[in-house]
Design a protein around this nucleic acid. Structure first.
Lengths: 206, 206
DNA sequence: GAATAAACCGACTAAGTGGTCTGTCGACAA
DNA sequence: TTGTCGACAGACCACTTAGTCGGTTTATTC
C-alpha cells in the first residue's frame, strides 16, 4: 500500500513535470533526459514506470489534460441556465486563468493538436477524442438553450459549436504572443456580440 | 548571371521542399537530411547556400510564407467594396484551398506560431510581424467599412480583427483533423451570422 | 585551354536521442 | 537473518542531429 503510494507519487511528479516541459518546449523538442534532470531522477526510474515516451505522453493526456479540460471547459457549461451566459462565463474564466498563469494547462490541447496533426495518429486519436467530448457538450448545451428559449431555433447548433471551438483555439494561440489581457477583452466583447445575434429576444442575453 | 540563376533555382527548390516538410512534420521534427534526401542534394550544397537551419527557415518565412499570406489573406480584402463581403469571400476561398489541397500553405503560420511560441524568440519575431501586418490590414478594412457605411460605427474594429484572426487560426487547426468540408461550411455560416450582427442595416450584407 | 570561382559532394565530429540492462538499495515477510 | 521484490541508478548502445571541411565538378572568362 505504502509502496503503491510511492509509485503513484513518483509517476505523478514525472507527469506534471513532463506536461510542463512538453507544453513549453513541445513534445519532439523535449527529451526524456530534460524531464529527468528537472526531477533528479534517472532513466531507470522512467522506464520502470513507463513503457516509452509515447506511452508516457498518452498517460499525461489521459490523466492531466482530460481532467483540466473537464473542469475548465466542460463542467462549467452544464446545467439548465442560459447556455450563452454559461459559455460566456466559462470562456471568461478560462481566458483569465490563461492571462495570469502562463502554465495553466487549460488548453495545451491546441498546441498538441497542432504538433501531432498528421504526424502521430495514435496520439492524435487521444486528442481528438477529448475535442469530440467538448464538441458534443457544446452542441447539447446549445440545443438545451434552444429548447429553453434562450437560443434562436434557426441556428445550427453544430455550427455554433464549431465556431466557438475554433475561436477559442485561435485566441489561445494568439494570446500567448502579445498583450494577452487586451486581446482577451476584445475577444470576449465580440463573443458577446455574436451571442446576441443568435439569442432569442426573450432569452435576455446581456 | 546564369550562375546566379542556378543559385536561385537551387535555393528555391530547397526552400519549397523545406516548407513542405516543415509544414507536414514540424520544424524540430524535420532534419536537414530529410530535405536533402528528397532533393538528392548534399550537406555541402545546403551549407553553401544557407548559414544554418534557423537561417534557412527564416528565409522560407520571408520568401514563401509572407507571399502566400499576402496573396491569400491580405490583398483580397483590400479595396473599397464592403469589407464584410470581401472578408467572407477571402475566407471562403482560403478555406476551400485548404480543403482540397493538403499542402496549401495559406496558413502554415498557425502551425509555426504554435511550434515556436516561447521557444525561439528570433523566429517568433518574424512570424508575429506577419500577423501584425494581417491585423493592421483587417483593422483598416473594417474602419473603411465603417466610413463607407457598411459596418456599424459602434463596433470595435480592433476587436473584430482579433476575433476574425482567432477564428481563422482555430478553424484551420481544426479542419485538418476531421470532416474539413463540413466544418468549413459550418464555420462560414457562423461568420456570416456574426457579420450580419455588426453590419449596418443599409450596408446590405447578405 | 588554362585559370578561376562558385556549386556541390560526402565523410566526419560532437552532442544528443530513445531505449536497454545490469546492478544497488531499502522495506518487509518468513 | 535471510530472501524477495519493487524503486531507482547510471553506464551503455545504436542511431540521429546540426554543422564542418577538404576535396571535386562545372561553367565561365580571358
Amino acid at each position: 500500500m505504502d509502496k503503491n503510494l510511492k509509485r503513484m507519487a513518483t509517476m505523478q511528479r514525472m507527469q506534471v513535470t513532463g506536461l510542463e516541459l512538453f507544453y513549453k518546449q513541445g513534445y519532439y523538442n523535449t527529451s526524456i533526459d530534460d524531464i529527468l534532470k528537472e526531477l533528479s531522477l534517472s532513466k531507470g526510474a522512467f522506464y520502470h514506470h513507463f513503457e516509452s515516451k509515447e506511452d508516457f505522453f498518452i498517460q499525461i493526456v489521459e490523466n492531466l489534460v482530460v481532467r483540466k479540460m473537464y473542469s475548465m471547459l466542460i463542467e462549467p457549461i452544464e446545467g439548465p441556465d442560459n447556455p450563452l451566459e454559461l459559455i460566456t462565463n466559462c470562456f471568461e474564466n478560462a481566458l483569465e486563468t490563461a492571462v495570469h498563469n502562463e502554465l495553466d494547462f487549460g488548453f495545451v490541447l491546441g498546441n498538441f493538436l497542432n504538433e501531432f496533426n498528421g504526424r502521430n495518429p495514435k496520439i492524435m486519436k487521444h486528442l481528438s477524442d477529448i475535442i469530440k467530448v467538448w464538441e458534443v457538450n457544446l452542441v447539447s448545451s446549445i440545443q438545451r438553450g434552444k429548447f429553453n428559449g434562450y437560443v434562436n431555433r434557426h441556428i445550427d447548433s453544430e455550427g455554433v459549436a464549431v465556431f466557438l471551438m475554433s475561436s477559442y483555439i485561435g485566441i489561445r494561440t494568439f494570446m500567448v504572443e502579445n498583450a494577452p489581457s487586451a486581446r482577451k477583452y476584445r475577444f470576449m466583447t465580440q463573443i458577446r456580440q455574436y451571442f446576441k445575434s443568435i439569442a432569442t429576444k426573450e432569452g435576455a442575453y446581456n
